[in-house]
Simulated assay, not measured.
Amino acid sequence: MCKTYAFLLTLLLAGVSFSAQAQMADRLSEHPAMSKAYGDKAVNLTREMTTRLHLNEGQFLRLLPVNRTKLAGMSIIEREYRNDDATRAAKAAELEAQYEQECSRILTPTQLSQLQQQNGQPSGAPAGTGNGLG
């Protein structure tokens, strides 16, 4: 029973930590200097995704800030953990999981599957429960 509580507490703390990091990336990506720095890259990335995945305008507009946040988050991770490969890889994996979860809310299942295949993930990877409609 004690192990169960310890496990749940660990999950809760990990979730809070990741949430705080994502919020920091959101705040940084909205900062004017960061917005410009990651804005152009995010627009280019989202345009590429539009071509590859056949996004509609609504999906483009919803995915743009998600891509900006991911780019800002990756920059933070690269900078803060440049001397710690293991932690950097773990944080990048966490960020990628959050990104995929956000994409699952925006993209259709077919588009999400295509994105996963293009990113080198197996098509049977968990894709969340989103239907791309809301």
Results as ranks from 00 to 15, higher is better:
Arg62His: 06
Ser35Ala: 11
Ile77Tyr: 00
Leu112Arg: 08
Glu94Trp: 10
Leu13Ser: 09
Glu102Pro: 02
Gly58Trp: 01
Pro65Met: 04
Ala6Arg: 13
Ser17Cys: 14
Ala97Pro: 05
Pro65Lys: 04
Pro65His: 05
Thr10Ile: 09
Glu57Asn: 11
Asp40Ser: 12
Glu48Pro: 03
Pro32Val: 06
Leu133Ser: 09
Thr50His: 09
His31Arg: 08
Thr50Pro: 08
Glu30Ser: 12
Phe18Lys: 07
Phe60Trp: 10
Leu107Ile: 00
Thr46Phe: 07
Gln101Glu: 10
Ala20Cys: 09
Gly39Met: 06
Val16Thr: 03
Leu107Val: 01
Leu8Gly: 10
Gly128Thr: 08
Arg68Val: 02
Val66Thr: 09
Cys2Asn: 15
Asp84Ser: 00
Pro65Gly: 04
Val43Ile: 15
Gly134Trp: 15
Gln114Lys: 13
Gln117Lys: 15
Pro65Trp: 02
Leu95Asn: 02
Arg52Glu: 15
Gln117Tyr: 14
Glu78Tyr: 01
Tyr99Glu: 09
Glu30Gly: 03
Leu8Ala: 12
Pro109Cys: 03
Thr108Glu: 05
Ala22His: 07
Ala37Cys: 04
Tyr99Asn: 12
Phe60His: 11
Thr4Val: 14
Ser17Ala: 15
His31Asp: 14
Leu115Cys: 10
Val16Ile: 10
Gly58Thr: 05
Ser19His: 13
Gln116Phe: 15
Gln117His: 13
Asn56Trp: 06
Leu64Gln: 10
Ala127Tyr: 06
Arg62Ile: 03
Pro65Thr: 04
Pro126Asn: 14
Gln21Pro: 04
Leu107Phe: 02
Pro109Ala: 04
Gly15Ala: 13
Gln117Ser: 10
Ala93Val: 05
Pro65Arg: 04
Asn67Pro: 04
